[in-house]
């Protein structure tokens, strides 16, 4: 059995439908999303940027259409969560005297940035459950990896708790999206005893 979630996704256990249609969800060799960020302010800025991309991705896929009613309902709920994450982290960033990067507005740019972070496939080309759900599983994997990295780098106590709480939510997103794709199979939805992205 693959030993990491990225390998699991790459193996096809999670993204079989996407692979069948030519999409490769989540790259196993993706670098640490926070590799270049050091210090609480820089890490926060990076996390805001990643959350903005995830928010954009959910919004874009909802707008692109083709989702089942069940998937659309889940995507709408998770979009609202990602918006809350952006607000939470942006407020913390501004409290430190820094300004968040402007959110993405172009799907090609967002798709490319998410690919660089390790989300396989293409946001621009995803539409409908068969492509969008595995794509967002890959995106949520990126989020988990970012927070896992942040937990070892952040120093402020409040930020650590905020990051842990958001990381838990992203892991729940991952499980719920997997449930959509695999009819609630708990072995696929909660494959490992630790969540590291």
């Amino acid at each position: 059995m693959p030993s990491t979630r990225r390998e699991l996704i790459r193996s096809g256990a999670v993204g079989a439908a996407a692979l069948a249609t030519g999409v490769t969800p989540s790259r196993a060799d993706a670098a640490d999303p926070l590799a270049a960020a050091n210090g609480d302010t820089a890490i926060l800025g990076r996390l805001v940027m990643i959350e903005q991309l995830i928010e954009f991705a959910y919004a874009h896929l909802l707008e692109a259409g083709g989702l089942s009613a069940a998937a659309a309902g889940v995507f709408k709920t998770f979009l609202s969560h990602e918006q809350a994450h952006v607000r939470l982290l942006s407020n913390a960033l501004m409290h430190r005297g820094s300004v968040p990067h402007p959110p993405p507005t172009d799907v090609r740019v967002a798709s490319r940035q998410l690919a660089i972070l390790g989300a396989g496939g293409s946001l621009r080309d995803s539409r409908g459950d068969a492509l969008s759900v595995p794509y967002m599983i890959g995106v949520e994997t990126v989020a988990e990896g970012a927070y896992y990295s942040a937990m070892s780098k952040l120093s402020d106590s409040t930020l650590l708790i905020d990051a842990a709480q958001v990381m838990g939510c992203e892991a729940q997103h991952w499980t719920a999206l997997s449930g959509l794709q695999h009819a609630g199979d708990v072995f696929v939805g909660v494959p490992y005893s630790t969540v590291k992205g």
């Binding site: 896992y148 937990m151 990381m167 838990g168 729940q172 909660v190």
Partner: peptide
Amino acid sequence: RAAAASILANDAQ
């Protein structure tokens, strides 16, 4: 801290 958070996230699942 990272190890603890990775377990927290699993318990959240």
